[in-house]
């Protein structure tokens, strides 16, 4: 039977694709921190339910289509009139209700969980990082350390990071899939995210919300390292990086794709975009016409390591 075979083919394709990608686990299923792990567990839990539903429907579908197909020998068969069946219809009403309830409970729990400092890390004081997204770069301010980076962050592993996020103009979405879920960054507003990396390593973060020509290049690198190494890095920045000036900051906010940059001081001394005032830096004329030449993704901020050191 053609249909059944086609379904089989699809299934084989499905498995083959899985196998193809299995050698390197998909980012979402390879969590590097408690928040991402929580989400990945929830997703796998839901996939099990979904697999049961898919298999049930496919088996029923296969049997029915095969058994009641028109054949040479049943051309005289006149199907009966059927009103429906209360019992059956109630069954396939109740079962989905149960499934929805089964999925709702862990979902609601996880929704509240991911809004707070992850379990087991509550006693540590979180490192605060202000995230400001602009066209088309990520600006990170460490108010406590009084330094600012563009398109990369270094964070201490095993310590909760409190991201306070806003945007200098268009809306973006801040996402480090290895560490946890995403959230929008919006001008005149502040959103929050708590993330922890419980392994040292380098992870990719990116913007998932389309915001114009340079959007595809809007990713950044997250380096999770030991607290001592993190402190070393902070000291190094404080000793070598240029001072951030208001002029320089206005230049950064222009709609451009740039590499990594590091500065002493943060822009929070002039403006916190969460509380308005961004229009001062927005120049509609800068957005006219074609802005970005075809750019290789490899040239972007992640692999580029332009430095901004004092001469």
């Amino acid at each position: 039977m053609k249909r059944v075979r086609s379904v089989m083919k699809l299934f084989i394709l499905f498995v083959a694709t899985l196998a193809l990608t299995a050698c390197e686990p998909l980012t979402v299923f390879d969590p590097q921190g408690p928040v991402a792990r929580n989400l990945s567990d929830l997703i796998i839990f839901s996939i099990i339910f979904m697999a049961v539903i898919v298999v049930t429907v496919y088996i029923l579908f296969g049997i029915i289509v095969w058994k009641y197909r028109e054949r040479e020998d049943n051309k005289d068969y006149e199907p009966p009139y059927e009103e429906g069946s209360k019992a059956l219809e109630v069954t396939w009403f109740i079962i989905p209700v149960i499934i929805v309830i089964a999925l709702t409970i862990p979902t609601v729990i996880t929704i509240s969980d991911v809004e707070d400092i992850p379990e087991g890390y509550e006693d540590q004081e979180p490192l605060v990082i202000h995230v400001t997204s602009a066209d088309w770069k990520w600006i990170f301010s460490y108010p406590e350390q009084d330094i600012e980076t563009v398109n990369y962050i270094n964070i201490p592993a095993n310590r909760p990071i409190h991201f306070k996020m806003t945007s200098a103009g268009t809306m973006q979405s801040f996402w480090i899939p290895s560490l946890g879920g995403q959230k929008y960054t919006m001008a005149n507003m502040q959103t929050q995210l708590y993330l922890v990396a419980d392994r040292e390593g380098e992870y990719i973060g990116r913007n998932t919300n389309f915001n114009g020509e340079g959007y595809a290049h809007m990713d950044f690198e997250v380096v999770a390292e030991s607290p001592s190494k993190f402190n070393e890095w902070v000291d190094e920045v404080k000793n070598t990086a240029n001072e951030l000036t208001e002029e320089k900051y206005a230049e950064i906010l222009q709609p451009t794709v740039i590499g990594r940059e590091t500065y002493n001081g943060t822009h929070l001394q002039w403006i916190d975009h969460a509380h308005g005032g961004s229009e001062k830096y927005i120049d509609p004329e800068a957005y006219e016409g074609h802005l970005i030449e075809n750019k290789k993704a490899d040239d972007d901020s992640v692999t580029d390591s332009e430095s901004n050191e004092k001469e």
Partner: peptide
């Protein structure tokens, strides 16, 4: 249904 689960959607969204 998977996308409907708000927490999980943090990893699927966009």
């Amino acid at each position: 249904v998977m996308l409907a689960m708000a927490a999980a959607d943090y990893q699927y969204h966009n």
